[in-house]
Structures are given as structure tokens and as C-alpha cells.
Write a protein that binds this DNA or RNA. Structure first.
Length: 350
DNA sequence: AACGCGGGGGC
DNA sequence: GCCCCAGCGTT
């Protein structure tokens, strides 16, 4: 048996029972692929089920508001995926009358659909001979064929992509693509793979050269940035607060948050208090009659940033214009640390 | 080609 | 603490 046959044979015996594998409907496959980008199955699965329940067909997703889509996406991260998901649902509903295009080129033209996702949808739904190249494929192929080029370099990624095309099964490309990824996810795992139990162990270059733990080679990534987010949650006499939509590019675009003062350096507590009071004054454009601060610090770690976050509850002596009732604040799409804070304080006596 | 973009889980 | 995850869009 050659490489692809052994991968397919392994897959037939070891594949997980996942809901998006029960259909070839492009809507379901597309939705699952977008959700699963840079996301583990355990994390993405409940979101997939929720989206399908809430938006059974592409027309349902197209009709929804962006807020509703973002709210359903809340907690999954990489929120541009949600905005692009919504835009593409509307494009398919209108430009394609609800039927997904069946060519690689047209799929690539959809927002949020890149080389990986177009190849996945094309092969799974339309039997296109398009090899997928994701993190699993980089790992499996670099090990089995002993590729020592950095996979996150231009030359390395081109090499792996070319290799993927050469070794792919021409019989059932969709099944084969999923098989190769599943093999990487369950058998050829990043750390301490069980090579003794691997059906490819007799011909794996990395295993023969004792380089399994060193492959794939990756160029070092940039150091994480530290940022300091000082939030204040105003509470007025009518138990209203203020939520502001993040509009500029960058983290959490499109989500809501409390009024924020960001500093590049950690502020001494007294200085933070003073700046926050001044910030309240300028942002609300009104004087405060009564203020009480209760800083609640936490660290929110992302892959590329460490956020040092504080929350302060500010009791106002006057009513807020454009305020949000505290009982309604949890219906807005918000970042995880905001959602956690809301959950903590929702039953507080304001 | 390099960079920014989330959140969670495994070790 | 570090690495990884069914990558993509922007610059």
C-alpha cells in the first residue's frame, strides 16, 4: 500500500463521528470549516451545533443581523471569521441564489475562504482534486518525508503544498483530505506521538532519523505584546450602564465593551484612578456627582498579546443618555473577559 | 513575506 | 510558561 492508501485505511478504522461528516451539503461543510480554522474540535463543535440550530440554512444566516452572528460566535475568537461568515452567507444568498459555487476559483473569491478552506469544500462537496494544507498536513508530511525546511517560510509552505498534491488520492479526494488531517490530529500529534502504533512507521523518514520531535521546523514567532486595559462600568440611578462598539481595526473589532482607558505601561493605582475620573468626565461629557471605585484586576492571555485588565464600577449620581439596562447587557456580543466580568457582577446590588 | 488576529487545552 | 489548533486578510 502506498501513502494515501494507508492513510485511508487508518481513517476507515479511526475516524471520529463528527456531525459535519454526515453530509456533503456545502453550507454545513463551509460552516464547519470556518469554525474549525485554528480551532480544536472540542472547542468548535458546540458552536457548530448552535449555528446549525439557529441558522439551519444559508438564507437564515444571511437574514440575521451581524450582531446576532457575533453574539453566537462570542467566545470563539478571531472575530473577523464571524463577520466574513455573515458577508459570505449574504453573497451566496443573493449572487448565487443560495447555492454555493462549485469551483475552486469561485470558492476562493468568498470572504473568509482561503486556499485551505476552498480546497476542503471543493474536495468534500464537489470531488475536486484540491489537496488541503493545514497544520496537520504540515506536520504529517514534514515528518513522513523528512522535510526540514521551516513550514512557516515561503519556500517550506510551497514545498509541502506541492508534496500534498503529489501524494493525494485521486479516488476520493474529500475523504482522503479529511483522513490526512484526522491522522495528524489523532495519530501524528505534535508532542510525543505513539510511533510504535503508527501504520506508517516502517517508512517514516523522521522516525528513521530520530527527528520526530524536531519536525516540523518552525521559524520563531514574535514576542507577545503587553497591554493595559482599564475599564470602568458606569452605573446610573436607573441601573443603566454604557457599552461601546469597538470600531477600529485590531483586537475584538465589532464587539462591545465598557468605556476603556488603555495605557502602554502599568499605571500606579492612584494615577489610574485620577486618569479614569478624567476619562469619565471627557467621555461622558458630564461631571460625576458620586464615584466609588472597586478595581478588579485580571490577566487575559492571548497568543499574541497579554492583556492586564482592570474593571472599576463607577456609581453615577445622574442618568446616562444612551445607556444600556444592566439586565440587558449580556445580550451584546462582548470579549470573553467582559463576559466573565458581567457574569460576576450581574447579581450585585448596584 | 510578515504581521495581526482569540481562546482554550495539553504538558 | 510554551506550543498548538481543519487559516485568512491586510500591508
Amino acid at each position: 500500500m502506498d501513502f494515501s492508501d494507508r492513510i485511508l485505511s487508518w481513517y476507515a478504522q479511526n475516524k471520529r463521528d463528527l456531525p459535519w461528516r454526515k453530509t456533503r451539503d456545502p453550507y454545513n461543510v463551509w460552516l464547519s470549516e470556518i469554525i474549525m480554522q485554528q480551532t480544536r474540535v472540542a472547542q468548535g463543535l458546540p458552536y457548530y451545533l448552535r449555528f446549525i440550530e439557529r441558522f439551519p440554512e444559508v438564507a437564515d444566516l444571511a437574514r440575521a443581523s451581524e450582531e446576532e452572528v457575533l453574539k453566537t460566535w462570542q467566545g470563539l475568537g478571531y472575530y473577523s471569521r464571524a463577520r466574513n461568515l455573515h458577508a459570505t452567507a449574504q453573497r451566496v444568498a443573493t449572487d448565487y441564489q443560495g447555492t454555493f459555487p462549485a469551483t475552486y476559483k469561485e470558492l476562493m473569491d468568498l470572504k473568509g475562504v482561503g486556499p485551505y478552506t476552498a480546497a476542503a469544500i471543493g474536495s468534500i462537496c464537489f470531488d475536486l482534486l484540491t489537496p488541503v494544507v493545514d497544520g496537520n498536513v504540515y506536520r504529517v508530511l514534514s515528518r513522513y518525508f523528512g522535510v526540514e525546511l521551516p513550514v512557516n517560510s515561503g519556500e517550506g509552505s510551497r514545498y509541502i503544498a506541492d508534496l500534498a498534491g503529489q501524494v493525494m488520492s485521486k479516488e476520493s479526494p474529500g475523504n482522503y483530505n479529511q483522513a490526512l488531517m484526522e491522522f495528524g490530529a489523532l495519530q501524528c500529534i505534535p508532542r510525543n506521538p505513539d510511533c510504535l502504533a503508527c501504520p506508517l512507521s516502517d517508512s517514516c523518514v523522521a522516525l528513521a532519523k530520530k527527528k520526530v520531535s524536531q519536525l516540523p521546523v518552525k521559524l520563531p514567532k514574535k514576542a507577545v505584546r503587553k497591554r493595559y486595559f482599564n475599564y470602568f462600568m458606569p452605573v446610573d440611578p436607573d441601573f443603566q450602564t454604557l457599552l461601546i462598539k469597538r470600531k477600529d481595526k485590531g483586537i475584538w473589532r465589532g464587539l462591545y465593551e465598557f468605556p476603556l482607558l488603555e495605557s502602554e505601561l502599568e499605571l500606579p493605582d492612584e494615577k489610574a484612578e485620577a486618569q479614569i475620573l478624567e476619562g469619565v468626565f471627557t467621555q461622558l461629557n458630564e461631571p460625576l456627582k458620586f464615584v466609588k471605585c472597586n478595581p478588579i484586576p485580571l490577566v487575559h492571555k492571548l497568543s499574541h498579546q497579554h492583556l492586564f485588565v482592570t474593571f472599576r464600577i463607577l456609581y453615577l449620581g445622574h442618568g446616562l443618555r444612551g445607556g444600556v439596562p444592566i439586565t440587558k447587557m449580556q445580550s451584546y456580543p462582548v470579549p470573553i473577559p467582559i463576559a466573565n466580568f458581567m457574569e460576576t457582577v450581574k447579581n450585585s446590588y448596584f
